[in-house]
Amino acid sequence: MTPLELLTWARGPGLSIALAICAFGILLRLFEIFSLGRKADLSKAREHSPGSGWRTILSRSLPPPGLMKRAPVTYIGGYVFHLGFAITLFFFVPHIELVRGLTGLSWPGLPTQVIDISAVAGLLALIAVLASRLSNPVKRLLSGFQDYLAWLLTFLPLATGYLAFHHLLIDYTLALALHILSVELLLVALPFTKLFHTVSVFVSRWYNGDIFGRKGVAS
């Protein structure tokens, strides 16, 4: 199999299989979660509450006062990684083309220099949060195989994409093929690992905001 054949497989059957597993898994997991149900709360909710599920979906993206100082690596690393990853994912023109190919939606991209910076920032942040995971006693206690797997699966697309873009170490075609394959691995693993937080975070934040909100607290 030549690199171009590998790339073709990745763009063709590989992508279809990965997206199919991802879609299957997300649906399955959502059913799994919602099937456990939630008893209607019979207590009288406050009429005028500053909080709500929808508010918390947004507000939890910001650090609560005081916590940034206590956990700077987690916050800054987390922000830089998520933003770097998101900018690279959603504003690199070839990625937009992929979305256009899948959904017909498209939007303007950013110059490659900007993408380059965001990808490098994302990679460095990932390394920083890994170092923190390995050295911080709390994170080390909490972390298991899945956490490191999720880290690797997130790191690989950025790393291979960077290698491909800059023609480093490996031939571009092979790098591009590996890049797409790494994204496919990410998609396959997404519903069944910690990576599912990309979907469930909206659910959990909503529940949190709703639980607090009905008591009159903006959480």
């Binding site: 987690t74 987390g78 956490d147």
Partner: peptide, 11 residues
């Protein structure tokens, strides 16, 4: 179920 699904062990 959603809480456990979302936890990324950030500490």
């Amino acid at each position: 179920a959603s809480f456990f699904s979302s936890c990324v062990h950030c500490g």
